[in-house]
Write a protein that binds this DNA or RNA. Structure first.
Lengths: 152, 152
DNA sequence: TCACATTTAATTGTTCGCAATTGAATAGGC
DNA sequence: GCCTATTCAATTGCGAACAATTAAATGTGA
């Protein structure tokens, strides 16, 4: 039974959860794009803004830990957000190694304009909130198990 | 009840399924990295090889449709695979617009070396196969709904 | 046949994402 | 205090990812 075998073949593209996650991430990105264009943000920039809207004046390192990104990604990204007058970067006076990221008034104001984004995404998902929450929790749990393996 | 409110706030990072998917994709990538380094492949290159191991001598366009990638991504990627002697790119004689991608003998041979990869990923997932299959199917269904919205 | 639209890859420019390195600031042991 | 290790951000280089454009081949309708 060739069909049954291919349905179990772990080397088949369609059987790989990783490709499912990878392609879903790209699909989300394409849905977000037109929404975020109106805000003048890319998706990773939007993630940084979400972090800052929750807590302002945060070290770069903390943003990196929340988003699983390092300074090689964040430094140029934050410079672009600064060039767009959404954040300010200042060295901490207590610890000169740290760079603190603070919202500007424009950065604060953008939160209101961004309020409609999650609703649009929910609509595009065509799925109940409870289903999405359940999926999200499963995916987060899987991600955390994977990250635990890396940390070894 | 501040806690309950934040647990429902759709503008909070932790409540966004998209971030769950995005960060899980990166976590997978980090688990794959050391495995694929041994094969001399990046993850997107590995995906292309998976497609070719299923069916050889495929137009670039077909690879793009399977992986949801366009020529802007695939053309340079395939040139790198060609430089690594894993594939050959030739113009179709029936339709000169198309570029056909064929495995070299080295490209074929790599399939055997790659056989251990899915098992390592499964182990890192620390999860039963049936659970992973169920999650995969849910994520694929979500992805397809998102892609349907984009196509409108 | 000829004009026009469509399809397909390639190219250009911008932004991520990360490994590896560098350099400055801080912490800890002596 | 002094030497060393650690921490943190920035930098460099490479490989995606994608929008927008270009160019060539093919298809289609008058």
């Amino acid at each position: 039974m060739a069909r049954k075998q291919s349905a179990l073949d772990p080397q088949r593209l369609d059987n790989q959860i990783c490709f499912a996650v990878y392609s879903a991430a790209h699909a989300f990105n394409r849905v977000y794009k037109p929404l975020l264009d109106q805000l003048g943000l890319t998706y990773p920039q939007y993630l940084v803004m979400l972090v800052l809207w929750e807590r302002d004046d945060v070290p770069l390192k903390d943003i990196g830990e929340k988003l699983f990104l390092d300074s090689g990604t964040l430094t140029p990204l934050l410079k672009r957000l600064e060039a767009a007058h959404l954040v300010k970067r200042t060295r901490s006076s207590e610890d000169e190694r740290q760079v603190l990221i603070a919202l500007t008034s424009q950065g604060h104001a953008l939160k209101e304009k961004a309020r409609a984004v999650p609703q649009s995404i929910l609509a595009a998902s065509d799925c109940s909130v409870s289903e999405l929450v359940a999926m999200k929790d499963e995916i987060v749990a899987l991600r955390d198990r994977l990250n635990a393996v890396i940390g070894e």
